[in-house]
Simulated scan of single mutants.
Amino acid sequence: MPFTPAARMPVAPLLALALALSGCAASDTADDSGASATPKAAESSAASGHAVRQPRANDPFDYQLGGAYDPPDGVRTVIRDRTAAPDPDPGIYNICYINAYQTQPDAVAWWRKNHPDLLLRDADGATVIDEDWEEPLLDISTDDRRDRLAGIVGGWIDGCADRGFDAVEADNLDSYLRSDGLLDRGEAAAFAGLLAERAHRAGLAIGQKNAAEMTGVRDEIGFDFAVAEECARYEECDAYADAYDDKVLVIEYRRADLTVACREWGDRLSIVLRDRDVVPAGEPGHVNARC
């Protein structure tokens, strides 16, 4: 299936992004009157002609990447894989998961056959792999590769919109940390900017997935909300909450961490306890609890 390449991120946002990542003063992104510049997310959604519906802070949510099932009572936000259908309940806010920076293990052969040059390789030509999940990293190191990858991933984003999702969650933003130094944070942020533009053009909100160190450039990238795994365990929830006005979906995988998350953030953030394999309800090993 052909994909239309996403538009290149404008020079001004890229400059602001570079300044932010280099630690320059935040005032560099303000206008002459001293007022803050309009966030890129708002600019992009306005330009798209589509209304981007935002998730609501502290709505009960469920994380269903291992397979779709009827949400528990009271749940108002659901995250499902892009291969699944959104929940048909009109009261549910549906978020579409996409693996934007790495390849799914069952898709490696497709990438090697169709786009072998878009897989990140080391000096010996070996594919660089996230060993925890056995997922090869995608090569976002150049403008050309980012544009081509944004065309492919952008097709997935458009598919999420066509099927009725409200938003996308772009996973593995932090894959540069697993690239053996071949990728950096600026390249990850530049690619995220392309994906944010594509999502907003399709009428979807887009969430930052993990990478708490990048919350400071959310406006330059265009992220609308955050999905944070184990932020209570690693004491990062405050960074996400401050950056996203509490529009943060937290997944914890240990009951002790759920207890901490609920005690400190239960009245502000959306929090769920899931098993690490996120298996569907009714299957062995399924864990699902909230504050």
Rank of each mutant, 00 (worst) to 15 (best):
Y93C: 08
P88T: 09
W156Y: 15
A109H: 02
A109K: 03
G159S: 15
A205V: 11
W110K: 06
R201W: 09
Q102Y: 00
L120M: 06
A192P: 10
G155L: 11
V128T: 05
N172A: 04
R121G: 01
L177V: 03
E187T: 10
E134Q: 15
A188K: 02
A196F: 08
R82M: 14
I157A: 10
T83Q: 10
P136N: 07
A126K: 11
I157L: 10
L183I: 01
Y101S: 00
G193H: 05
L173Y: 09
D117N: 14
N94Y: 06
E187F: 03
L177R: 14
A202M: 12
W156H: 11
D139M: 06
D162W: 06
A196P: 10
H200M: 13
L182V: 01
L137D: 00
L204S: 11
N210K: 10
R201D: 13
D158M: 08
R112Q: 13
T142N: 07
D122H: 03
A100V: 03
V153R: 08
L183W: 04
L182Q: 04
D106H: 14
E169V: 04
H200I: 11
R112H: 01
W156D: 12
Q104M: 13
R163N: 11
D106M: 04
Y101I: 00
L138E: 01
Y93S: 08
Y97W: 09
A84E: 14
A109C: 02
R201T: 14
D89V: 08
A190N: 07
G186L: 11
L173Q: 07
L149N: 05
D89W: 14
A84Y: 13
D117K: 07
T83N: 15
G203Q: 15
W110C: 01
G181R: 03
L137G: 00
T127C: 01
L149Y: 05
R146H: 11
Q104G: 09
F191P: 03
Q102A: 00
D180Y: 02
Q208D: 11
Q104A: 14
R121H: 07
I92E: 09
P90G: 06
A205N: 13
E169T: 04
D117F: 02
A189G: 09
S179T: 04
E169Q: 12
A84H: 15
R112C: 00
N94C: 07
D132N: 13
P105Y: 05
A85N: 14
L177P: 01
C160W: 08
P136M: 08
D144I: 07
P136S: 12
R145G: 03
D117T: 10
Q104W: 13
G164M: 10
L149C: 06
P88W: 14
G125K: 03
L195C: 08
L119E: 00
D174F: 05
R198E: 14
G181P: 05
I206W: 11
A190K: 08
N114L: 07
Y101P: 00
T103Y: 00
Q104E: 13
D147A: 15
E187V: 03
D87M: 09
D166P: 09
A170K: 03
L138Q: 02
L173G: 02
P105F: 04
